[in-house]
Amino acid sequence: MSHPIRVLVAKPGLDGHDRGAKVIARALRDAGMEVVYTGLRQTPEMIVNAALQEDVRVIGLSILSGAHNAIVPRVLELLREKDMTDVKVVVGGIIPDEDAAELKRQGVAEVFQPGASLDAIVQFIRGAAPV
C-alpha cells in the first residue's frame, strides 16, 4: 500500500492573510494528501524544523506581503544546511514574474501566482513527490 504524500503548508512572515493557505491545505487534503498547517508568522527556522519533525516531502509557502525575496532563499538555505534538499519547496502568492524566475533558479520547484487552479497545484505536487 502506498503512503500518502505529506505536505507542510506554511505562512511565513508577518502577513496574516491566510485564506489562500487554508484553501490550499483543504484542497490537498481532499486530494488524499496528509497536510500539516503551521499557522501564522513562522520564521524560516520554524518552518524547516517543522518540515523535519513532520517528515514531509513538500513544503508549500504562502506569501502575499512582498517579503518572498527575504524569506524563501533563507528556507532553501536551511534545507541545504540540514541535508533536506529532497524536500520540494513550492511557493504561492503575489510573486512577480521576475522574482518567480529567480526563486526557481535558486531551487524552488514551482511558483503559483494568483489565478492558479487548485487542480494544477495538486497535479504538480503529485508529480514532484511521486509515491
Partner: peptide, 10 residues
C-alpha cells in the same frame, strides 16, 4: 528582526 523583508512593502 521580524521586520526583515517587510518594511514599507504593504
Amino acid at each position: 528582526a521580524m521586520s526583515e523583508g517587510e518594511v514599507g512593502k504593504c
